[in-house]
């Protein structure tokens, strides 16, 4: 019995999850259909809610432009993401070394979940310049730092005490305990943080641009078009923001599979 389980060791999705994407996709299409029907049926005026068909045709009339300003904003999101997640990871490692720091910093970081950090945007605009990319990168970095710190710290401290006792019995150096036990054990937690932060960073960058930014930025475009009631244009910008956010998320998910093929969530035979 055990042998037959071994032979199918290659990470392959169980049959049942091969079609797991169907229900959400169908729900999505149904929602779009209902939206379209409602707009036509009740003659909802354009300045309140455009029909999906109108949004799609506006989107398709200028995909290159939307992609260009989208990528500018995505660049800010990515830069902030890299800064925030890197700092968060390094801080988590420092917290493991100095537990006193962890006792002070971790509860504070958990509490920061409840703080709408995007609200700091105007302040960062004052400090770093309202139209600069730096102020957006700053907002995203702050937004992503704390979830990464909390999650990675949890991961680094997650191994069972016996796993540490084992290392102690080998007279292992601190460096080996970190690299061969704490770090690999923290990978699932790190990727969890990166997934959360990928979506957070796109939201952060777009919203931060609402408070000011250069003309070629997606958030600025959405805000200005909505301001002059060109809602189809505003919505097509939102669509681009969604596409970029989802793509970012999926890239992280793909990296997760590459770096942790051993992880429980990818196993064929789950207990």
């Amino acid at each position: 019995m055990a042998v037959s389980r071994i032979s199918s060791a290659a990470p392959r999705l169980p049959r049942t999850t091969q079609y797991a994407f169907l229900p959400p996709v169908l729900t999505f299409l149904l929602g779009i259909g209902l939206w379209e029907a409602a707009v036509r049926l009740f003659n909802i005026p354009l300045y309140l809610l455009p029909a999906p068909s109108g949004i799609i045709s506006t989107f398709l009339s200028q995909p290159g432009y939307l992609l260009r300003i989208g990528l500018y904003t995505f660049g800010e999101a990515l830069a902030g993401f890299v800064v925030g997640c890197t700092l968060g990871t390094l801080l988590a490692a420092v917290c493991v070394r100095f537990r006193g720091l962890a006792d002070g910093l971790i509860p504070f970081s958990i509490a920061s979940n409840a703080v709408p950090i995007v609200a700091l945007s105007p302040l960062l605009g004052v400090w770093l310049g309202a139209t600069t990319a730096a102020s957006k990168i700053g907002v995203v970095a702050i937004m992503t730092l704390f979830p990464t710190l909390v999650n990675v710290y949890r991961g680094l401290t997650s191994p069972h005490p016996d796993a540490f006792q084992l290392m102690r019995s080998y007279a292992a150096r601190q460096r080996d305990i970190f690299l061969k036990l704490r770090l690999p054990a923290s990978l699932p937690y790190l990727f969890n943080a990166l997934k959360i932060c990928s979506t957070l960073s796109m939201i952060g960058a777009v919203v931060a641009e609402f408070f000011g930014g250069t003309q070629n930025a997606l958030g600025v475009y959405i805000k200005s078009q909505a301001g002059i009631l060109r809602l189809r244009e505003a919505w097509s910008g939102i669509v681009m923001a969604c596409l970029l956010g989802i793509t970012f998320y999926l890239i992280i998910v793909a990296l997760e599979r590459v770096f942790m093929p051993w992880h429980v969530s990818f196993r064929r035979d789950r207990p």
Binding site: D162, Q165, W262, H263
Partner: peptide
Amino acid sequence: RDYGIVFQAPVLYDW
């Protein structure tokens, strides 16, 4: 390194 230890749980490293 005089000691080899075996616990009740195998404590293998998943990765």
